[in-house]
Design a protein around this nucleic acid. Structure first.
Lengths: 227, 227
DNA sequence: CGCCTATTTGAAAACCGTCAAAGTATGTGG
DNA sequence: CCACATACTTTGACGGTTTTCAAATAGGCG
């Protein structure tokens, strides 16, 4: 169990609540409950009822969908201070994807109705949410373009660049995860990354990839032949 | 030139403004100007400055992006009463895609700053926008999964089902447009649609596709072999 | 040390894109 | 009303990219 003060502290680190006063944050904190998950544990499953809106206090969560043959596709990763589950909550429809903890994770959960009634009184928070949703749509559209029209090598290069823009040059992902994000297979990802590794474009150790030569990666992302 | 009353009438047909009073609509109408476009004409181009937010009064608009080799990818279609350009406007970053009129189109355009200052005073409109953005994210995520993991035949089936859920069984698209949405080529689309046509799953005449057997299409979308 | 997961490599085949050419509607102007 | 231009549709053959299947290696943790 954590204190109200700690909840306020966690909420205040989230972009969408940055405009709130201490008092408003306290009001929000009173609606929030803490939930803990271990690595691999599911927070909700696609098609579940949209009862909870979440903010990550500490940890990492992935949103996944599955193809008709059961292949996992990673839709997004979320880290500290980020919200998720919002699409379902705002539409009042089942969650469009499953949410799974990637590592030990602490969340603050707020009930759908509580959060919506809070939201109508907080136009600035609504604007912040609009901003975040717009950003996610922009990213989704970019990925749609890549998946619909680019080769695997370019998709992987773009994926690494997108991730490193958000997380830095050290990327804590396995080849499997990268494949599930780029819409390809582990084997293909390995073949391409091995090549890049021998050309000193990236470095890697088990479950961790480092971008060494961003310039060359950018050329690969643009599909210039024989970089 | 159209009258204020007509603008109010057009705005009132839009979902996001359904909560507004006549007076509020009039205020919004005063900020809006009418713009007309002929088929094929570009309303804005990817990377343009995000100066305008648009509502479609009458017509049809597509959002397109291009791959590194120049192939066109259709991100979305918008029809009467729908907004577009919002991602750029809310993030205050360049438009993430180009917007092109598909047919003769009339728009209402509102300047970014005008619209944002209107928005902070209208929490219900903000909630409506959140709702629309959430819906678009849901759709984008579903397409991401399809593009990343499903075969072309299944992608086409799903695309047709998604479009028909929105527009009805009569779909005004060419095979080229369908290909650009499903991330494939005209030839492949034709080969698959021809097969479906001979199996009476769809019908088609130049630039128009009719869904005849939705049940079978659903099975194809799920990838059941030999339906 | 031994297990489990991540990574690697190879070979064969499937899927789909590419290229080339031709057929068929629709509309236009003479 | 016909002839032509244009865009959409169709078909076939070929080949490349990527998946699939199988098996082996390597690194980290209890």
């Amino acid at each position: 169990m954590i204190s109200e003060t700690q909840k306020v502290e966690i909420l205040s680190r989230s972009f969408i609540f940055s405009a709130l006063t201490g008092e408003e944050l306290t009001g929000l904190a009173r609606m929030a409950i803490e939930r803990r998950f271990t690595a691999e544990q599911f927070i909700f499953i696609e098609e579940d009822a949209p009862d909870w809106f979440y903010i990550i206090a500490d940890g990492k969560v992935k949103a996944v969908k599955h193809t008709s043959l059961g292949k996992e596709i990673i839709i997004a990763f979320f880290g500290n201070g980020e919200m998720f589950g919002e699409v379902a909550v705002f539409e009042n429809k089942p969650y469009p994807a499953s949410a799974q903890a990637v590592s030990e994770t602490r969340l603050l959960g707020i009930r759908r109705e509580d959060f919506l009634s809070f939201l109508v009184k907080q136009p600035l928070v609504a604007l912040g949410i609009i901003n975040v949703l717009a950003g996610r749509l922009r990213e989704a559209q970019s990925r749609l373009r890549d998946l619909a029209g680019e080769r695997v090598e370019q998709r992987l290069a773009r994926m690494l660049l997108m991730l490193s823009a958000k997380l830095g040059a050290e990327l804590p992902f396995t080849r499997q995860e990268l494949s599930d994000m780029a819409g390809t297979t582990t084997e293909t990802t390995i073949r391409i990354l091995s090549q890049w590794k021998s050309r000193k474009i990236i470095g890697s150790v088990r479950g961790r990839i480092t971008i060494l030569d961003e310039t060359k990666l950018r050329l690969l992302a643009e599909g210039r032949p024989r970089v």
